[in-house]
Computed example of a mutant assay.
Amino acid sequence: MSKTQINPNKLLLSKWTSVSPTHKEKHFIVTELMRDEEGTVIECTLEAVINRNSYTLPWQSLTSAVDWKQGWK
Protein backbone atom coordinates (compact mmCIF):
# COMPACT_ATOMS: atom_id res chain seq x y z
CA MET A 1 0.00 0.00 0.00
CA SER A 2 1.56 3.28 -1.04
CA LYS A 3 1.74 6.31 1.22
CA THR A 4 1.89 9.99 0.29
CA GLN A 5 4.37 12.14 2.23
CA ILE A 6 2.55 15.05 3.91
CA ASN A 7 3.67 17.90 6.13
CA PRO A 8 0.63 18.25 8.46
CA ASN A 9 1.44 21.92 9.10
CA LYS A 10 0.94 22.71 5.40
CA LEU A 11 -2.42 20.95 5.01
CA LEU A 12 -4.64 24.00 5.57
CA LEU A 13 -6.48 24.94 2.33
CA SER A 14 -4.89 22.03 0.44
CA LYS A 15 -7.03 20.24 -2.16
CA TRP A 16 -7.77 16.50 -2.22
CA THR A 17 -9.58 14.06 -4.50
CA SER A 18 -11.37 11.02 -3.13
CA VAL A 19 -10.39 7.84 -5.00
CA SER A 20 -13.83 6.30 -4.31
CA PRO A 21 -16.32 9.16 -3.98
CA THR A 22 -19.60 8.72 -2.10
CA HIS A 23 -22.67 10.92 -2.65
CA LYS A 24 -20.87 12.54 -5.63
CA GLU A 25 -18.40 14.07 -3.15
CA LYS A 26 -15.11 13.78 -5.01
CA HIS A 27 -13.21 17.03 -4.46
CA PHE A 28 -12.37 18.33 -0.98
CA ILE A 29 -10.49 21.21 0.61
CA VAL A 30 -8.92 21.18 4.08
CA THR A 31 -10.69 23.96 6.01
CA GLU A 32 -9.42 23.42 9.56
CA LEU A 33 -6.58 21.79 11.49
CA MET A 34 -7.07 20.53 15.05
CA ARG A 35 -3.99 20.56 17.28
CA ASP A 36 -3.15 19.09 20.67
CA GLU A 37 -1.68 21.05 23.62
CA GLU A 38 1.83 20.92 22.09
CA GLY A 39 0.57 22.35 18.79
CA THR A 40 0.89 19.06 16.91
CA VAL A 41 -1.72 18.56 14.18
CA ILE A 42 -3.94 15.61 15.13
CA GLU A 43 -7.00 15.96 12.88
CA CYS A 44 -8.20 17.94 9.89
CA THR A 45 -11.60 18.97 8.57
CA LEU A 46 -12.31 18.30 4.90
CA GLU A 47 -15.11 20.17 3.16
CA ALA A 48 -16.73 18.70 0.05
CA VAL A 49 -16.68 21.27 -2.76
CA ILE A 50 -19.99 20.12 -4.30
CA ASN A 51 -22.22 20.50 -1.22
CA ARG A 52 -20.06 21.96 1.60
CA ASN A 53 -20.45 18.87 3.84
CA SER A 54 -17.63 18.70 6.38
CA TYR A 55 -15.82 15.62 7.66
CA THR A 56 -13.23 15.45 10.44
CA LEU A 57 -10.59 12.75 10.24
CA PRO A 58 -7.04 12.04 11.41
CA TRP A 59 -4.70 13.85 9.00
CA GLN A 60 -2.71 10.62 8.55
CA SER A 61 -5.62 9.09 6.61
CA LEU A 62 -4.78 11.47 3.74
CA THR A 63 -1.46 9.64 3.31
CA SER A 64 -3.30 6.58 1.93
CA ALA A 65 -2.96 6.66 -1.86
CA VAL A 66 -5.68 3.99 -1.97
CA ASP A 67 -8.22 6.53 -0.66
CA TRP A 68 -6.86 10.01 -1.53
CA LYS A 69 -4.98 11.88 -4.24
CA GLN A 70 -3.39 15.26 -3.58
CA GLY A 71 -4.92 18.04 -5.71
CA TRP A 72 -8.10 17.89 -7.76
CA LYS A 73 -7.86 15.16 -10.37
Rank of each mutant, 00 (worst) to 15 (best):
S2E: 15
S2I: 06
S2P: 13
K3V: 13
K3S: 13
K3F: 12
K3R: 12
K3N: 09
T4C: 02
T4W: 00
T4M: 00
I6V: 08
I6A: 04
N7P: 00
N7R: 08
N7E: 10
P8W: 09
P8R: 09
N9R: 09
K10C: 04
L11S: 08
L11C: 07
L12K: 09
L12P: 13
L12S: 13
L13K: 11
S14V: 08
S14H: 06
K15F: 08
K15Y: 10
K15L: 12
K15V: 07
W16G: 01
W16D: 01
W16F: 03
T17K: 03
T17A: 00
S18C: 11
S18D: 08
V19F: 03
V19Q: 10
S20N: 14
S20C: 11
P21H: 04
P21S: 03
T22N: 08
T22C: 05
T22I: 14
T22A: 11
T22H: 12
H23A: 14
H23I: 04
H23L: 08
E25D: 12
E25A: 11
E25H: 12
H27F: 08
H27Q: 07
F28L: 01
I29M: 13
I29A: 05
I29V: 15
I29E: 12
V30R: 05
E32N: 15
E32P: 08
L33C: 09
L33M: 10
R35N: 10
D36N: 15
D36P: 05
E37S: 14
E37V: 12
E38Y: 11
E38G: 09
E38W: 11
V41L: 02
I42A: 05
I42P: 11
I42Y: 09
E43N: 11
C44S: 06
C44Y: 02
C44T: 05
L46P: 15
E47K: 13
E47Q: 14
E47N: 05
A48K: 06
V49R: 07
I50Y: 10
I50S: 07
I50D: 08
N51Q: 06
N51K: 03
R52Q: 11
R52Y: 12
S54H: 07
S54C: 15
S54L: 09
Y55V: 01
Y55H: 04
Y55A: 07
Y55Q: 04
Y55F: 07
T56Y: 01
L57I: 12
L57N: 02
L57P: 02
L57F: 06
W59N: 01
Q60S: 06
Q60P: 01
S61W: 13
L62K: 05
S64N: 13
S64L: 05
A65S: 15
D67T: 13
W68S: 00
W68Q: 00
W68L: 03
W68T: 10
K69W: 07
K69G: 00
Q70A: 09
G71I: 15
G71R: 02
W72Q: 02
W72V: 01
W72N: 04
W72M: 00
K73I: 00
K73R: 06
K73P: 12
